[in-house]
Design a protein around this nucleic acid. Structure first.
Lengths: 195, 195
DNA sequence: GTCTATACCCAGATAGAC
DNA sequence: GTCTATCTGGGTATAGAC
């Protein structure tokens, strides 16, 4: 018979993170209480502090993990090749990765102002690194003569902003297959950079 | 000599709205207290309730006003003409309007989940109406044969998302003139729709 | 219309028993 | 590692004097 009290260190930690991710995404960091998170996990509020030093560290940890997973996945995905193919791969990767992690993506964009300045700087550095991986592809394409882009940095931001917009309206299981979404956005991105 | 207490109904109301707009944009709706707003205005918290029924009505009112001003400005700006010119006008209008009202724009996009379902529906309808004014231009351009767009609705959303991204990085008074920003984004939008 | 005072409730975080 | 109990502070909103 299961104990209702005792040691659960290896499962409670991840469950706290999962519950916080869901609740922060749904209601916002400031609107979610530690007691709500604890209730979702099935422990008392005080028990959370065996796993996290405070609420804000929990937020930062969630954002940092998300960004690091994003960067790792991006690094594994960006294989050598011509710039046009690499840009298409970026677009499709970005769409899929971000649709698979809506909660984390939502938090990463909406809760930046709830980070301390040091934590903000750390997350911002990771975000900037991701942006740079796209800039590199765009720059290579310009060098190869296949892209026509007046401002690389702005173009990278514009592409990412455009793709991030998908999360606000696309519903998995809806009428439009993911492949079709990718194709439509890839068409627009390709044209926008003159490819 | 100025009274420190008494009647100020015609100035206190707007000051409450201005303070709330600024504080909500900076710290988030849930993180801002009525006491903070009152302190910013220079009254006690209880006095706020002479002007607003509750905190959420204040948020809704700010968002609704913003969207209505946006729609009014858009209606005044969209003059007849060829689709390419109207699209350029939309892009330049959207950029300028949104950069001039960063706080309201930020709130309108970030605080939707803090609205009651009725209030959310009202704001969403206004947002959708704005989106439709862009769709109309895109549709006209396709009909005229000057645009090549696989999906009008997605294209409109993509353009708006791309342009909204400007607010996250552009700083008025920074190294880049507004004209240059408009030109770069117009170049990308024009190409993206095949114009 | 604004004030003071307060009702009522919940927040984050900690202490010490088990 | 989790519990119960609690500290301390602050939240929205209202009541009634001025």
């Amino acid at each position: 018979m299961a104990r209702t009290t005792g040691s659960h260190s290896d499962i409670t930690g991840p469950r706290i993170r999962a519950a916080a991710l869901r609740l922060f995404a749904r209601h916002g960091f400031a609107a979610v209480s530690m007691r709500q998170i604890a209730a979702e996990v099935g422990v008392q509020a005080g028990a959370l502090y065996n796993y996290i030093p405070d609420k804000q560290s929990l937020l930062f940890s969630l954002m940092q993990s998300h960004m690091e997973e994003l960067l790792a996945a991006r690094a594994a995905q960006d294989v050598p090749g011509d710039a046009l193919a690499r840009l298409e791969a970026f677009v499709r990767f970005h769409i899929r990765f971000h649709l698979e992690r809506r909660d984390a993506v939502f938090i990463a964009y909406m809760e930046l102002r709830n980070l301390s300045s040091e934590n903000f700087a750390a997350v911002e550095a990771l975000r900037r690194t991701y942006e740079t991986t796209l800039e590199q592809v765009l720059q290579d394409g310009v060098t190869e003569g296949v892209f026509a882009i007046p401002d690389i940095r702005i173009a990278a931001r514009a592409v990412i902003a455009m793709l991030n917009g998908i999360n606000t309206w696309y519903r998995v299981g809806g009428p439009m297959p993911l492949d079709a979404v990718e194709a439509v956005y890839w068409d627009m991105v390709r044209k926008a950079v003159g490819g």
